[in-house]
Write a protein that binds this DNA or RNA. Sequence first.
DNA 1: CTCGTCATTATGTCTGGACATAATAGTTGC
DNA 2: GCAACTATTATGTCCAGACATAATGACGAG
Lengths: 229, 229
Amino acid sequence: MSINYKDIKSEILTRITKGDLPPGALVPNEVELAESYGCARATVNRAMRELTDEGILERRRKAGTRVRMAPLREARFSIPVVREEIEGQAASYGYTLLNRQILHAPDWLRERLKLVVGDDVLHLTCLHRADNAPYQLEDRWINLARFPQAAGVDFAASGPNEWLISTVPFSDVEMSFGAAAATAAQANYLGCTTGDALFEAERSTWWEGRAVTFVRLTYPPGYRMTTRY
Amino acid sequence: MSINYKDIKSEILTRITKGDLPPGALVPNEVELAESYGCARATVNRAMRELTDEGILERRRKAGTRVRMAPLREARFSIPVVREEIEGQAASYGYTLLNRQILHAPDWLRERLKLVVGDDVLHLTCLHRADNAPYQLEDRWINLARFPQAAGVDFAASGPNEWLISTVPFSDVEMSFGAAAATAAQANYLGCTTGDALFEAERSTWWEGRAVTFVRLTYPPGYRMTTRY
DNA sequence: CTCGTCATTATGTCTGGACATAATAGTTGC
DNA sequence: GCAACTATTATGTCCAGACATAATGACGAG
């Protein structure tokens, strides 16, 4: 029953929360800690490295390890595939493709995705339902200049989300959340009133410096996106 | 110039995105990989462990390592202290305490924070401004049964956020985002019209199983919370 | 055929050593 | 006093080996 890197993590964490190691304080160096815990430096190193990844500590070569001034608290949350999200709530999943067309990228999209004039995009509008009630309105734009094969896929049966996830890689993502008043079209599909406050999530995805897709997800009034950590 | 665990990570990642290792595929075991890369198993282990943490792989003892079916797409973002967020945009930060009172926790709060009937809470309402324009309306509730010292702090000069961060530890957090129509009071403080669509973030915090604080942050129309990864 | 037992296997972690690298602090030259 | 070098120091990474642990799959008893 020897010392575990997890024990060291929680021991250090206790010292911090007890005020023994206030924000900004210098944590003993790895060699000293290893000696005092009676373990190898690698073990201490792992504990400290993870605490650093978690935003609790701050490390600089030669300068040493310090407790972060304002502990960088990171919210993480997974963005599930809608279908899984709905089925996870023991509700039945429904999907409808509302609209599909190929067109030149509009100006605002060109700017967002850094596209070139004349690039074609596939524009899809889909509605996802949970137990038959509108759950999410998906406004999807796929860069055909990058993924021409998307033009040949039939999105009538399953959403572009699922196709993209299994076939298109990505490396850079920008997400943003906000609120907007429902347009007449949105209100119609989501079963609410024009002007209602809707929660909106947008995601842009790139691969090797080139745009893959942009999507705007809109939810009915009252929807909340929740995460725990 | 030997092999780095980062090289292994990106090599595996390339194999995945190239379709060489499709979702669900079994990745060679650590011993084999170590041999083929000509490095120690510990190095391969670290690469695989990090890819697992990042949601790319899935590992089970004896069963081996597999590429995740639906790569767990995680948005991570740090929740900055408002002041730092504003000053980071090269804007001047302004703060006003609008309201402060001690009262019994209302029912909805008791339920949310799992409080006991009769527990006192400190209720604060504050406005944060960027270049004098309303930036964030903070509706803060602090559990006095847990942190009685909060009652003695003067929040006139700086926000409860900063005090909490530097003095109160927490271990469990639940965050949620949504949209809501502006109430008359919110519209007044945020300089918008009643009924406008506002972006709302809520955060509940616990430490050692007991509630620390609950806060609801409301932003003026048009605000977007953005993250990159 | 089903249930429990046990060997096998891949990952999880630790050791004690090594060299690499970044950043500081001290020293030297101007 | 200032700038450029240099030694020192703490972290970053690696290695080769070891034992721990969880989960599977095969085997045997009922």
